[in-house]
């Protein structure tokens, strides 16, 4: 019943738009605009239910994006960072001298990358753990200083450096009670429980504000898409 309702409403909207287009519209003459508009409508048809148009657009979207990312990785990672430095520009030769340091700088990451392909073998598949461990370990290490800076030092400084005002007091209480909410090693009872409850209030108020702000941004995206359909494609609005 709900689906039938959706189908009827959708059909009516579509018919109305097309009627409007024939009466006062100036449809685009660009084939690309037509393709983009049809794909947009195909994706929107998911609001009604899963259907052949959505499936087509979804698979096209996924396929094209995979193909595109493969070409980007091939060009930006393999050609620019491996093939060219090794065989064309030979960046490891400086002043006609072979630099082992620069050479290893290309070869070691390449070998680590090649180890990813060990997954295709049954006996040597464990080798894939080496590049994964390298990526996780190196990024975790490199992330320590920025985490300290952004999550501890900057937050603490911003909380401290406030003027004597009611809003500043509210912020300090908010920060402390929110931190208390994230205490895991003590049961939230008594004063700790009450402070944690206050903390969750602060968290939810912040989330509410963030929700409203993001919804506004999403609506602007929808307006942009509608403008594309009604202005660029159908020429119904000027």
């Amino acid at each position: 019943m709900k689906e039938r309702k959706g189908l009827i409403i959708g059909s009516v909207i579509m018919i109305a738009i097309f009627v409007l287009m024939f009466i006062k519209g100036e449809p685009s003459k660009s084939i690309m605009v037509w393709i983009a508009a049809i794909l947009t409508l195909s994706i929107y048809s998911f609001l009604y239910k899963d259907n052949v148009f959505y499936k087509f657009a979804e698979h096209l979207f996924v396929g094209v994006s995979v193909g595109y990312s493969v070409s980007v990785v091939w060009q930006n990672a393999f050609i620019r960072r491996v093939f060219d430095p090794l065989f064309i520009t030979r960046t490891y030769i400086v002043n006609d001298k072979f630099s082992l340091y620069l050479f290893l700088g290309i070869v070691i990451p390449t070998l680590l990358g090649l180890l990813m392909l060990s997954i295709f073998t049954k006996k040597q598949a464990w080798l894939i753990r080496i590049p994964i461990a390298f990526v996780v370990g190196s990024y975790a290490g490199m992330g320590i200083a920025p985490s300290f800076q952004a999550n501890i030092f900057e937050q603490t400084r911003s909380t401290l450096y406030v003027t004597l005002s009611i809003s500043a007091s509210i912020m300090i209480v908010g920060v402390i009670s929110t931190l208390v909410y994230f205490f895991f090693s003590k049961e939230h009872k008594g004063l700790l429980g009450k402070t944690a409850n206050l903390g969750i209030w602060f968290i939810m108020i912040a989330f509410g504000a963030s929700f409203g702000y993001t919804v506004m941004a999403r609506i602007s995206l929808l307006i942009g898409r509608m403008q594309f359909l009604l202005h660029d494609w159908l020429g119904v609005i000027k």
């Binding site: 899963d50 979207f61 996924v62 995979v66 990312s69």
Partner: peptide, 19 residues
């Protein structure tokens, strides 16, 4: 692996959920 495009990924996961 699905895709490394944000909304391509979203469309793909949505399709998997529905099917």
């Amino acid at each position: 692996y699905l895709t490394q495009d944000q909304f391509g990924f979203a469309a793909g996961v949505d399709g998997i959920m529905i099917r």
